[in-house]
C-alpha cells in the first residue's frame, strides 16, 4: 500500500471546495486529490499515493518510472488495486479471496 505511482494530470476541477484532478496512469484514469500541490498544472506529472498527489515529478523521470514499474510487474498490480476497489465503493460485494 505504500507504493506511489507517477501519473499525468489531464484535467483539474473543483469538487465542493476541494482541488481535484483526473490523472492518467498508463491505461487507467482516476480521480485524484490535488489539494497538496496547489500549483500543479494540466499536462504535468505527479506521484500519486492512495488517491493523493504528493510530489511533482518531471515527465522524463515519470515515464521512466512507469516503464520500470511495468517491466517489473508492479504497475499492473497497482492499477488492479485501483480498479478492484472501485466496485466496493459503490456496493457491498461478495467476499473475494485475494
Amino acid at each position: 500500500m505504500c507504493l506511489a505511482v507517477p501519473g499525468c494530470v489531464e484535467e483539474i476541477y473543483d469538487e465542493a471546495g476541494t482541488r481535484m484532478g483526473r490523472v492518467r496512469f498508463g491505461s487507467v484514469v482516476r480521480d485524484v486529490c490535488l489539494a497538496y500541490l496547489p500549483d500543479l498544472q494540466v499536462g504535468e506529472y505527479t506521484i500519486v499515493h492512495v488517491g493523493f498527489a504528493i510530489s511533482r515529478i518531471d515527465e522524463e523521470s515519470a515515464q521512466k518510472t512507469l516503464q520500470t514499474f511495468d517491466e517489473l510487474g508492479l504497475l499492473e498490480e497497482e492499477l488492479e488495486e485501483m480498479q478492484r476497489t472501485s466496485s466496493d465503493t459503490r456496493s457491498s460485494s461478495a467476499p473475494t479471496p485475494r
Binding site: 482516476r30 480521480d31 492512495v50 488517491g51 493523493f52 476497489t85 472501485s86 466496493d88 467476499p95 485475494r98
Partner: peptide
C-alpha cells in the same frame, strides 16, 4: 488489512460472516 490476523479473527472472516467490510483504494472512497 483484509487477512491480517487479529486475536481470533480477521476482516476477511468478519466479511464472510456478513459484516459490511469494503476495500478502498483511497480514504476519499
Amino acid at each position: 488489512m483484509l487477512r491480517v490476523p487479529g486475536s481470533k479473527d480477521d476482516l476477511f472472516r468478519i466479511r464472510a460472516a456478513g459484516g459490511d467490510v469494503r476495500l478502498v483504494y483511497s480514504p476519499l472512497d
